[in-house]
Design a protein around this nucleic acid. Structure first.
Lengths: 172, 172
DNA sequence: TTTTTACGTCAACCATGTTGACTTAATTCC
DNA sequence: GGAATTAAGTCAACATGGTTGACGTAAAAA
């Protein structure tokens, strides 16, 4: 039996392709956050804490304002989790000596330990997927994901060079 | 200046690569849900409603139990949003005539309309990213994302054939 | 006929986001 | 030097969307 729909209407295949993209993103994110969430709940922390710990670990001496720009939440929301993390000894706050209004955030040893425990799962999951898919696929994964991200944050990720023909891009 | 770290320690590059994967997933998901959320809040609905509408639209006549398996939330959580969607005329419930315990969920016309409005943003975003990255990249994107998803749901997405050499995969 | 399945419901609670108002200290601008 | 701006924090109220636990009903399966 011939697939009449995709023959007569090329948009049909495209629609299906796009919807699969939407769904894969949903499932991937759901499963990606599942395991760290389980670890966090055992020590009475949540996903919001993980995000803060992650990005402070990744950007030592980051200011509160810069952290807010990454997370795109309000400072009141951040305040709740951040002060908890400081109180419980996961994060250190020091005053910026150049501009004494700014507070610089850094993970303590305890914070680094937790960050490793939490991210280990996710690193392994990605490593497994990368390995199974191969280097070229990883390149494509990065290019597409980068395109999905809003312009303001795309710059965080270097532009990967096209796989083979550097000419003739942007048009299919 | 030579990059001593990546020369002496190949794991350093790998670590950076994996962390970028983690972050891209975070940023992509954050931006991916932003626009639909804005539309939803105008009609006093939330992201949870979107997910239900999306998957009911994608799986007409789906049962509550099957929907729960996709969303991986409790039936009490689902109940809250689902009954709202039924009450407000976005979703129809009919009894399965084969097994009269089951209720089959389908979008009404109003539901289809909303689903289109919401998903349009996301489809466009993905379409843009796909187009910019090219067909090969899309292939890679799918392969990697599929690998990130837990085995139980991977089967939802067909295995894409490797780009060129079908031999020599899984090892770098 | 008993057990299981599908679905629903009430109630309490928790995590994480929001808005809005207001404060303090430090820096920058004129 | 004084005014305006910036960085950070705080209090309060509220919305959303998850959770657990207990319980109920109808239909199907064992």
């Amino acid at each position: 039996m011939v697939d009449v729909k995709s023959m007569a209407n090329p948009l049909f295949l495209r629609e299906e392709e796009l919807r699969q993209g939407i769904e894969m993103l949903f499932f991937a994110y759901r499963d990606f956050t599942g395991e760290p969430d389980a670890i966090l709940s055992e020590i009475d922390l949540g996903r919001a804490h993980h995000r803060v710990i992650y990005f402070v670990g990744r950007n030592p001496r980051i200011t509160v304002t810069d952290l807010l720009k990454i997370l795109k939440i309000t400072k009141q929301s951040l305040s709740r989790v951040l002060s908890q993390l400081v109180n419980e000894g996961y994060i250190d706050q020091t005053t910026d000596q150049g501009d004494r209004r700014k507070k610089l955030l850094t993970l303590t040893e305890k914070g680094v330990d937790l960050e490793h425990r939490l991210t280990e799962n996710q690193r392994k999951r990605i490593a497994r997927a990368y390995k199974a898919a191969g280097a070229e696929a990883v390149q494509g994964f990065r290019e597409v994901l980068r395109g999905i991200i809003d312009p303001g944050d795309q710059e965080r990720f270097e532009i990967v060079a096209p796989a083979m023909p550097p000419q003739r891009r942007g048009k299919g």
